[in-house]
Nucleic acid binder design. Structure first.
Length: 579
DNA sequence: GCCGTTTTCGGCCCGACTGTTTTCAGTCG
């Protein structure tokens, strides 16, 4: 089965090959952009290429040339230009390009003059000392190559948001305690809330950058200093993560934060937008474009805006864009009004107790929801097929419903729904018969098994669940685990259309292992008029804290309060789900 | 290779740091 990921990897590899061959960098970047677009796309591009090929080219970043490559791939499973390009280079050379610090120029040099064709030959030639004869290959560079080979051979790929964010917050609080630091924060993909991040970008405002940098590289977590300058340092920590720190004067905090938050594509968009208005934007501020090539800040040119991000957007006549929306797909478009915020959430609609695989009692979960100011919690323990999660037989479920209702009466000031997270079986049947579902207040239907079935089977399976009159929410719809398993790949647009029609909500599961629906699919669901529900799937009291990750994912998809059932006033919600 | 409220041709963001060099190329974000 060909997927968007297959298309993305082919274009990314073509970009690598072209770069090694010394091709025009703009062509290389265009290839990379197609790879990103393919990776992010909510639609199955092969399916689209077969059904409505014209729509491919309508996508931003995909032109006639790339569209025809995708169409060829969709119809034949092959992409001749990719195959030809790959054949012009040693097969292992692309791996050499993955070594940090080695770019296309150096790899080509190692290939042409050193006979390096893959990681194995590179290591052998490093050991033999042959490479030292090549121009620009000094002892330092060779030593760095050797160390970085060792690093990529042991390092894991990207880090999940849920692992990186708490860690970054800890580093930020320690930086704030360093003498001379006036402001500190994290930026980059972490601030944009991407589901996984490559490294942690930190920013400090200070008038004494040198000593702040010295304090930073001396942090106990630092395993290796990759760069250490007056205003910028880069380190690798003992846990393998890379952390970059930039220091800027307090007066340009906003410009720097904007720049280091990215995305790269958003920065390019903003700079191009500035150019059109005869202005220049860099990390030191927004300046008038006086035609002088030299950086304006180094010539004492006064910035038009620099102190805050809002100032800069305003000076460009744009609305401030929340970091979550600064991805290439959003361009410089203003954010939707009523973009969801964490304070808008009024209820948790997916939670577990000790009855199945949770760690806390019904009453503990209910009291925690109340303590957090929620007006409602749905207790949704697992259904009978989830044996590994101690799923409830019909008999146990009947008793559990009574127990949940009893707590609901005992604890005042919060609505308690007796619910279930019912397995959607592989064939689309639910794990309890309808007459049992009828006894519940609330039904979340989720796939837990058979997560490798074909897209066609997955589509039929989820359509069947959407059609069940008792189902209100489709829980973690793909069943993916980040860095674990890809999960189902149904025809999402078909599902969203059906769910919009049936008034069934799709869940954004806040657990950082899942974040399912993912951001791009949230956007597609919204376009289809679908309702969404953000839940933590709490298995403990601490799990309520995971909500922030679901909110971030929702915001990245542009979710508004109106489309999110967890934000509705109780009356509206109650009327909706009782139907 | 992509794109268009100056353009279907001619552009395509900008600066810090490293290492190897006597002034800069390469890499990175």
């Amino acid at each position: 089965m060909a997927s968007n990921a297959d298309i993305a990897s082919r274009f990314a590899t073509m970009a690598d090959c072209l770069e090694l061959l010394g091709e025009n960098t703009f062509r290389v970047n265009a290839m990379r952009k197609v790879a990103r677009v393919a990776e992010d796309a909510a639609d199955d591009l092969c399916e689209l290429a077969r059904r409505i090929p014209k729509q491919l080219q309508a996508m931003d970043g995909i032109g006639a040339s790339s569209a025809s490559k995708i169409i060829e791939f969709a119809n034949t499973g092959r992409m001749h230009e990719y195959e030809e390009l790959l054949a012009t280079l040693p097969a292992g050379l692309i791996d050499v390009l993955r070594i940090p610090g080695l770019g296309p120029k150096t790899v080509k040099l190692l290939w042409d003059q050193g006979g390096v064709t893959d990681l194995v030959s590179l290591k052998a030639k490093l050991a033999s000392g042959d490479l030292a004869a090549i121009p620009r290959m000094g002892a330092k560079i060779l030593q760095n190559i050797a160390e970085n080979i060792a690093f990529i051979e042991t390092a894991s790929a990207r880090t999940r948001l849920g692992d990186a964010l708490p860690f970054a917050e800890e580093l930020v609080s320690r930086l704030r305690a360093v003498t001379g630091v006036q402001e500190a924060d994290y930026a980059g993909s972490l601030r944009r809330g991407r589901e996984t991040i490559g490294d942690i970008d930190l920013l400090v405002a200070t008038n004494d950058p040198v000593s702040v940098m010295q304090a930073f590289v001396a942090f106990a977590e630092v395993a290796k200093i990759l760069a250490h300058g007056e205003t910028k340092s880069s380190v690798r920590l003992h846990n393998g993560m890379q952390v970059d720190l930039r220091a800027v004067p307090p007066a340009v905090w906003g410009a720097a934060l904007l720049y280091f938050t990215g995305s790269k594509e958003h920065n390019v968009s903003l700079r191009e937008f500035a150019q059109q208005q005869k202005m220049r934007l860099n990390e030191y501020g927004l300046f008038p474009d006086d035609g002088n090539e030299q950086p304006p800040q180094s010539r004492g040119v006064k910035a038009l805006a620099a102190a805050t991000e809002t100032d800069i957007y305003k000076a460009l006549d744009l609305a401030w864009l929340p970091p979550e929306l600064r991805e290439s797909r959003n361009g410089c478009q203003p954010p939707p009004t009523n973009l969801l915020q964490i304070t808008d959430i009024r209820r948790e609609l997916h939670s577990h107790t000790t009855a199945s695989d949770g760690a806390c009692s019904i009453e503990q979960m209910v009291r925690e929801a109340k303590r957090r100011g929620f007006d409602c919690i749905a207790i949704t323990d697992h259904s009978r097929s989830s044996a590994q999660a101690n799923g409830l037989s019909i008999e146990r479920l009947i008793e559990h419903i009574a127990a949940v209702r009893a707590v609901g009466e005992a604890v005042t000031g919060i609505h308690v729904l007796a619910g279930s997270e019912v397995d959607i079986l592989a064939d689309g049947h639910l794990d309890y018969p309808d007459e049992v579902l009828a006894k519940l207040d609330w039904v979340v239907a989720s796939p837990h098994t058979a997560l490798k079935q074909t897209p066609e089977a997955a589509t039929q399976r989820l359509l069947a669940a959407i059609a069940n009159p008792y189902v209100r929410v489709i829980g973690h719809p793909s069943g993916r685990i980040l860095g674990g398993r890809p999960g189902l790949e149904p025809d999402w647009r078909t599902l969203f259309a059906a769910a919009a029609q049936a008034q069934v909500a799709f869940e954004i599961n806040s657990n950082p292992m899942r974040l399912d629906l993912r951001d791009q699919l949230v956007q597609a669901a919204l376009e289809a008029g679908c309702l969404l529900s953000i839940n933590t799937d709490a298995h403990s009291l601490q799990n309520f804290n995971l909500l922030r990750y679901g909110i971030t994912t929702a915001r990245r998809g542009g979710l508004t309060t109106d489309a999110c059932i967890n934000t509705w006033p109780w009356q509206r919600f109650n009327t909706w789900f009782q139907k």
